[in-house]
Protein backbone atom coordinates (compact mmCIF):
# COMPACT_ATOMS: atom_id res chain seq x y z
CA UNK A 1 0.00 0.00 0.00
CA UNK A 2 1.10 3.57 -0.73
CA UNK A 3 0.15 6.41 1.63
CA UNK A 4 0.99 10.01 0.84
CA UNK A 5 -0.01 12.80 3.22
CA UNK A 6 0.56 16.51 2.64
CA UNK A 7 3.66 15.84 0.57
CA UNK A 8 5.73 18.92 -0.24
CA UNK A 9 8.91 19.35 -2.22
CA UNK A 10 10.58 22.74 -2.37
CA UNK A 11 13.62 23.34 -4.52
CA UNK A 12 15.85 26.32 -3.77
CA UNK A 13 16.59 28.48 -6.77
CA UNK A 14 19.95 30.11 -7.33
CA UNK A 15 18.49 33.62 -7.24
CA UNK A 16 17.39 33.06 -3.67
CA UNK A 17 13.79 32.05 -4.19
CA UNK A 18 11.96 28.76 -3.89
CA UNK A 19 10.09 26.56 -6.29
CA UNK A 20 7.30 24.41 -4.84
CA UNK A 21 7.31 21.49 -7.24
CA UNK A 22 4.89 19.48 -5.10
CA UNK A 23 2.52 21.32 -2.82
CA UNK A 24 0.55 19.41 -0.21
CA UNK A 25 -0.23 16.25 -2.19
CA UNK A 26 -2.23 13.47 -0.44
CA UNK A 27 -3.49 10.17 -1.83
CA UNK A 28 -3.56 6.43 -1.10
CA UNK A 29 -3.13 3.45 -3.37
CA UNK A 30 -4.47 0.16 -2.07
CA UNK A 31 -3.09 -3.32 -2.63
CA UNK A 32 -4.08 -4.68 -6.08
CA UNK A 33 -4.99 -1.21 -7.29
CA UNK A 34 -3.58 0.51 -10.39
CA UNK A 35 -3.47 4.24 -9.74
CA UNK A 36 -2.80 6.73 -12.55
CA UNK A 37 -1.02 9.93 -11.58
CA UNK A 38 -1.83 12.27 -14.43
CA UNK A 39 -0.84 15.78 -15.18
CA UNK A 40 0.78 18.04 -17.79
CA UNK A 41 4.52 18.52 -18.08
CA UNK A 42 5.95 20.22 -15.00
CA UNK A 43 2.93 19.32 -12.85
CA UNK A 44 5.14 17.50 -10.33
CA UNK A 45 4.44 13.86 -11.29
CA UNK A 46 8.05 12.78 -11.70
CA UNK A 47 9.14 14.66 -8.57
CA UNK A 48 6.38 12.89 -6.62
CA UNK A 49 7.41 9.49 -7.97
CA UNK A 50 11.08 10.17 -7.19
CA UNK A 51 10.15 11.01 -3.60
CA UNK A 52 8.14 7.81 -3.39
CA UNK A 53 11.06 5.84 -4.82
CA UNK A 54 13.45 7.30 -2.24
CA UNK A 55 15.53 9.14 -4.83
CA UNK A 56 14.90 12.58 -3.40
CA UNK A 57 13.88 13.62 0.09
CA UNK A 58 10.52 15.27 0.73
CA UNK A 59 10.66 18.78 2.18
CA UNK A 60 7.55 18.06 4.22
CA UNK A 61 4.73 15.57 4.61
CA UNK A 62 4.63 11.83 5.09
CA UNK A 63 5.20 9.04 2.58
CA UNK A 64 4.76 5.43 3.60
CA UNK A 65 5.24 2.50 1.27
CA UNK A 66 4.42 -0.97 2.47
CA UNK A 67 4.29 0.57 5.95
CA UNK A 68 7.82 2.03 5.80
CA UNK A 69 8.42 5.76 6.10
CA UNK A 70 10.51 6.93 3.17
CA UNK A 71 12.65 9.19 5.36
CA UNK A 72 13.16 6.81 8.23
CA UNK A 73 13.54 3.50 6.36
CA UNK A 74 14.74 4.42 2.86
CA UNK A 75 16.39 1.03 2.23
CA UNK A 76 13.25 -0.89 3.25
CA UNK A 77 11.21 1.38 0.99
CA UNK A 78 13.56 0.70 -1.92
CA UNK A 79 13.33 -3.02 -1.25
CA UNK A 80 9.52 -2.82 -1.42
CA UNK A 81 9.42 -0.87 -4.66
CA UNK A 82 10.11 -1.69 -8.29
CA UNK A 83 10.87 1.71 -9.77
CA UNK A 84 10.75 2.26 -13.52
CA UNK A 85 12.24 5.59 -14.51
CA UNK A 86 11.07 7.65 -17.46
CA UNK A 87 14.31 7.03 -19.37
CA UNK A 88 15.12 3.62 -20.83
CA UNK A 89 18.77 3.95 -19.82
CA UNK A 90 20.42 0.55 -19.47
CA UNK A 91 23.98 -0.63 -19.04
CA UNK A 92 25.10 -0.74 -22.65
CA UNK A 93 27.75 -3.38 -22.21
CA UNK A 94 25.65 -5.87 -20.22
CA UNK A 95 23.03 -8.21 -21.58
CA UNK A 96 19.47 -8.04 -20.18
CA UNK A 97 20.13 -11.30 -18.34
CA UNK A 98 23.31 -9.96 -16.71
CA UNK A 99 21.55 -6.72 -15.83
CA UNK A 100 18.67 -8.58 -14.15
CA UNK A 101 21.18 -10.70 -12.22
CA UNK A 102 22.97 -7.54 -11.04
CA UNK A 103 19.80 -5.92 -9.70
CA UNK A 104 18.63 -9.20 -8.18
CA UNK A 105 21.90 -9.43 -6.25
CA UNK A 106 21.58 -5.81 -5.10
CA UNK A 107 18.18 -6.73 -3.67
CA UNK A 108 19.87 -9.51 -1.70
CA UNK A 109 18.36 -12.43 -3.66
CA UNK A 110 20.30 -15.69 -3.82
CA UNK A 111 21.63 -17.06 -7.10
CA UNK A 112 18.99 -19.79 -7.48
CA UNK A 113 16.10 -17.41 -6.85
CA UNK A 114 17.54 -14.94 -9.33
CA UNK A 115 17.91 -17.63 -12.02
CA UNK A 116 14.29 -18.71 -11.59
CA UNK A 117 12.91 -15.18 -11.50
CA UNK A 118 14.93 -14.03 -14.51
CA UNK A 119 13.77 -16.99 -16.60
CA UNK A 120 10.18 -16.28 -15.52
CA UNK A 121 10.40 -12.59 -16.51
CA UNK A 122 12.10 -13.39 -19.80
CA UNK A 123 9.20 -15.66 -20.64
CA UNK A 124 6.45 -13.28 -19.51
CA UNK A 125 7.87 -10.25 -21.29
CA UNK A 126 8.83 -12.19 -24.43
CA UNK A 127 12.54 -11.35 -24.08
CA UNK A 128 14.05 -14.68 -25.09
CA UNK A 129 15.30 -13.48 -28.47
CA UNK A 130 17.42 -10.69 -27.00
CA UNK A 131 18.08 -11.76 -23.40
CA UNK A 132 21.75 -12.48 -24.09
CA UNK A 133 22.53 -9.62 -26.44
CA UNK A 134 24.21 -6.43 -25.21
CA UNK A 135 21.68 -3.78 -24.15
CA UNK A 136 23.46 -1.15 -26.28
CA UNK A 137 22.14 -2.81 -29.42
CA UNK A 138 18.50 -3.25 -28.36
CA UNK A 139 15.49 -1.42 -29.82
CA UNK A 140 13.47 1.04 -27.69
CA UNK A 141 10.76 -1.55 -27.09
CA UNK A 142 13.27 -4.23 -26.09
CA UNK A 143 14.97 -1.74 -23.73
CA UNK A 144 11.64 -0.86 -22.13
CA UNK A 145 10.80 -4.53 -21.58
CA UNK A 146 14.22 -5.00 -20.02
CA UNK A 147 13.63 -1.97 -17.77
CA UNK A 148 10.28 -3.35 -16.62
CA UNK A 149 11.85 -6.73 -15.95
CA UNK A 150 14.56 -4.92 -13.97
CA UNK A 151 11.92 -3.17 -11.83
CA UNK A 152 10.22 -6.51 -11.20
CA UNK A 153 13.22 -8.74 -10.63
CA UNK A 154 12.90 -8.78 -6.85
CA UNK A 155 9.12 -9.25 -7.15
CA UNK A 156 8.38 -6.15 -5.02
CA UNK A 157 4.83 -5.57 -3.70
CA UNK A 158 4.75 -2.01 -5.10
CA UNK A 159 5.46 -0.85 -8.65
CA UNK A 160 6.14 2.77 -9.53
CA UNK A 161 6.11 3.21 -13.29
CA UNK A 162 7.03 6.57 -14.79
CA UNK A 163 5.87 6.73 -18.42
CA UNK A 164 6.06 2.95 -19.00
CA UNK A 165 4.85 3.10 -22.61
CA UNK A 166 6.64 6.23 -23.81
CA UNK A 167 7.74 5.92 -27.46
CA UNK A 168 6.78 2.26 -27.86
CA UNK A 169 5.30 0.58 -30.92
CA UNK A 170 1.81 -0.94 -30.80
CA UNK A 171 3.00 -4.50 -30.20
CA UNK A 172 5.31 -3.68 -27.29
CA UNK A 173 2.73 -1.28 -25.90
CA UNK A 174 0.22 -4.11 -25.78
CA UNK A 175 2.68 -6.52 -24.11
CA UNK A 176 3.51 -3.98 -21.40
CA UNK A 177 -0.07 -2.90 -20.71
CA UNK A 178 -1.18 -6.54 -20.46
CA UNK A 179 1.69 -7.18 -18.12
CA UNK A 180 0.75 -4.23 -15.86
CA UNK A 181 -2.83 -5.48 -15.73
CA UNK A 182 -1.64 -8.96 -14.83
CA UNK A 183 0.61 -7.64 -12.07
CA UNK A 184 -2.30 -5.63 -10.67
CA UNK A 185 -4.43 -8.75 -10.73
CA UNK A 186 -1.67 -10.55 -8.79
CA UNK A 187 -2.22 -8.06 -5.96
CA UNK A 188 0.57 -5.58 -6.61
CA UNK A 189 0.10 -1.93 -5.75
CA UNK A 190 0.80 -0.03 -8.95
CA UNK A 191 1.31 3.69 -9.31
CA UNK A 192 1.91 4.94 -12.82
CA UNK A 193 2.25 8.25 -14.51
CA UNK A 194 1.56 8.73 -18.20
CA UNK A 195 0.65 11.33 -20.78
CA UNK A 196 -1.41 8.79 -22.72
CA UNK A 197 -4.78 9.39 -21.11
CA UNK A 198 -6.71 6.97 -23.32
CA UNK A 199 -4.32 4.26 -22.33
CA UNK A 200 -4.59 5.18 -18.65
CA UNK A 201 -8.38 5.02 -18.94
CA UNK A 202 -8.16 1.38 -19.98
CA UNK A 203 -5.86 0.07 -17.26
CA UNK A 204 -6.11 2.31 -14.15
CA UNK A 205 -8.67 1.73 -11.43
CA UNK A 206 -8.36 5.22 -9.99
CA UNK A 207 -6.77 8.51 -11.02
CA UNK A 208 -5.16 11.48 -9.37
CA UNK A 209 -5.04 14.60 -11.53
CA UNK A 210 -2.26 16.94 -10.49
CA UNK A 211 -1.54 20.40 -11.69
CA UNK A 212 1.19 22.77 -10.45
CA UNK A 213 2.05 20.36 -7.68
CA UNK A 214 -1.50 20.12 -6.28
CA UNK A 215 -4.07 17.37 -6.54
CA UNK A 216 -6.95 18.83 -8.56
CA UNK A 217 -9.18 15.76 -8.54
CA UNK A 218 -9.13 12.12 -7.56
CA UNK A 219 -11.40 9.12 -8.10
CA UNK A 220 -12.44 6.40 -10.53
CA UNK A 221 -13.84 7.15 -13.98
CA UNK A 222 -17.43 7.36 -12.76
CA UNK A 223 -16.54 9.79 -9.99
CA UNK A 224 -14.51 11.97 -12.35
CA UNK A 225 -17.29 11.93 -14.97
CA UNK A 226 -19.79 12.98 -12.34
CA UNK A 227 -17.54 15.76 -11.09
CA UNK A 228 -16.74 17.13 -14.54
CA UNK A 229 -19.74 16.30 -16.67
CA UNK A 230 -17.37 14.98 -19.35
CA UNK A 231 -17.06 11.41 -20.61
CA UNK A 232 -13.46 10.98 -21.78
CA UNK A 233 -10.49 11.21 -19.47
CA UNK A 234 -8.70 13.79 -21.62
CA UNK A 235 -11.76 16.09 -21.50
CA UNK A 236 -12.17 15.50 -17.77
CA UNK A 237 -8.53 16.33 -17.26
CA UNK A 238 -8.72 19.65 -19.11
CA UNK A 239 -11.94 20.60 -17.38
CA UNK A 240 -10.78 19.80 -13.89
CA UNK A 241 -7.44 21.45 -14.33
CA UNK A 242 -9.19 24.60 -15.48
CA UNK A 243 -7.34 24.50 -18.78
CA UNK A 244 -10.28 23.77 -21.05
CA UNK A 245 -10.88 27.39 -22.09
CA UNK A 246 -7.17 27.91 -22.63
CA UNK A 247 -6.91 24.90 -24.99
CA UNK A 248 -10.05 25.93 -26.85
CA UNK A 249 -8.67 29.43 -27.31
CA UNK A 250 -5.41 28.10 -28.73
CA UNK A 251 -7.28 25.69 -31.01
CA UNK A 252 -9.71 28.45 -32.13
CA UNK A 253 -12.68 26.29 -31.10
CA UNK A 254 -16.07 27.52 -30.06
Amino acid sequence: MVEVEQLVKVFPTTIGGEKRAVDGLSFRVERGEIYGLLGPNGAGKTTTLRMLGGLITPSDGVVRLNGFDVRERPDDVKRSVGYLTASTGLYQRLSPRELLHFFGELHGMDRGAIERRVDELIGWLDMKSFADLRCGGLSTGQKQRTSIARALVADPPILILDEPTLGLDVMTNRIILDFIRAEGARGKTILLSTHYLDEAETICHRFGLIYEGRLMAEGNMEQLRAASGKTRLSEIFLKLCGQEQHVLAIGGGT
Binding site: K78, R79, L106, H107
Partner: peptide, 14 residues
Protein backbone atom coordinates in the same frame (compact mmCIF):
# COMPACT_ATOMS: atom_id res chain seq x y z
CA UNK B 1 24.30 10.65 -19.19
CA UNK B 2 23.09 7.16 -20.12
CA UNK B 3 20.21 7.48 -17.66
CA UNK B 4 21.20 4.50 -15.52
CA UNK B 5 22.12 6.47 -12.40
CA UNK B 6 18.51 7.01 -11.38
CA UNK B 7 17.89 3.27 -11.69
CA UNK B 8 20.92 2.46 -9.60
CA UNK B 9 19.96 4.98 -6.92
CA UNK B 10 16.53 3.37 -6.75
CA UNK B 11 18.12 0.06 -5.75
CA UNK B 12 18.44 -0.66 -2.02
CA UNK B 13 22.15 0.16 -1.82
CA UNK B 14 23.54 3.15 0.09
Amino acid sequence: ERGTLETLMAAPVP
